[in-house]
Design a protein around this nucleic acid. Structure first.
Length: 269
DNA sequence: ATGGTGGTTCTACCA
């Protein structure tokens, strides 16, 4: 079994204590982090190495930033989406880890709609879809985890009508998320859990957390070869309840070990 | 309709 978590930490420096205590308690093999909000050189690598993790980071000053922690070595690291390597916003990092290709993404928020931020979000999603086509062609298991800033369906938001025109829930945004599913990817949480109201984000404002006014915007999308190995995908609300919490909480995916080839199981030579 | 909170940085910007 391999366990892979994703968590938008909203500043790795401000959240270092929350993150290390959660790592010790939940002990995921891999943690994908978004919004680390620091430059690559300023990432607190040694604090995570001390807990037994390898580290790959794509940072920038003040905003965005993504990182992968893994108990296994991280190989063939790439940063940025193909065709958008020059994008100054640090939003994508990918590596081989434990026999799985793992992408960590921080998809643009896109608000306010009507500014250049929204077409940037849609274009970013188009680049992602093209990259997914390339990854699918390898026929290898891969997992894309992160803060998608997409509410996939009405069951994933406390008040769908209030969010109808928001960049996270507009039809143009959801259509592009649907495109990723139509290419052959699977929303790991939703294929295992049918209930509405399973949120991963609660705003800091207006008592959203105590009132449970949340959104499900942090996702794991799996390739067909990864879905074959899907054990479960769960949301851990614990970290959101703590002092100095991020506004997001971790989502954890577990994949079974690969099945032995049919011929090996049945003794076919 | 507004304001409500929080991180980075130091003056707004972003979410």
């Amino acid at each position: 079994m391999i366990s892979i978590a994703t968590w938008n930490v909203n500043s790795v420096k401000a959240r270092l204590g929350n993150i290390t205590s959660w790592l010790q308690q939940a002990a995921p093999d891999v943690l994908l982090m978004q919004e680390i909000k620091c430059e690559t050189e300023a990432f607190p690598t040694s604090a995570f190495r001390d807990l037994g993790y390898h580290v790959a980071v794509l940072g920038q000053k003040a905003y965005n930033g993504v990182a992968i922690l893994a108990k296994m070595p991280l190989e063939a690291v790439r940063t940025g989406l193909p065709g958008a390597e020059a994008d100054p916003q640090a939003r994508y990092i990918e590596a081989d880890c434990g026999g799985v290709r793992i992408g960590c993404l921080y998809l643009p928020n896109g608000n306010p709609v009507g500014t250049e931020k929204y077409p940037y979000k849609l274009a970013w999603m188009d680049h992602l879809a093209r990259h997914v086509e390339t990854l699918l062609a390898t026929e290898q298991p891969f997992v894309l985890g992160g803060d998608y800033n997409i509410i996939p369906a009405a069951a994933d938001v406390y008040d769908p009508q209030a969010w109808a025109t928001d960049a996270l829930f507009r039809l143009e945004s959801r259509a592009r998320f649907r495109t990723l599913l139509n290419l052959g990817l699977t929303d790991a949480f939703r294929v295992r859990h049918a209930e509405p109201g399973a949120y991963t984000f609660w705003d800091y404002q207006a008592g959203a957390w105590p009132r449970d006014l949340g959104l499900r915007i942090d996702h794991f999308l799996l390739s067909p070869q990864a879905v074959d190995r899907l054990d479960d995908c769960v949301i851990d609300r614990g970290p959101r309840a703590q002092e100095k919490a991020s506004d997001h909480t971790p989502v954890m995916l577990t994949l079974r070990d690969p099945a032995k080839p049919f011929a090996q199981v049945h003794g076919v030579s």
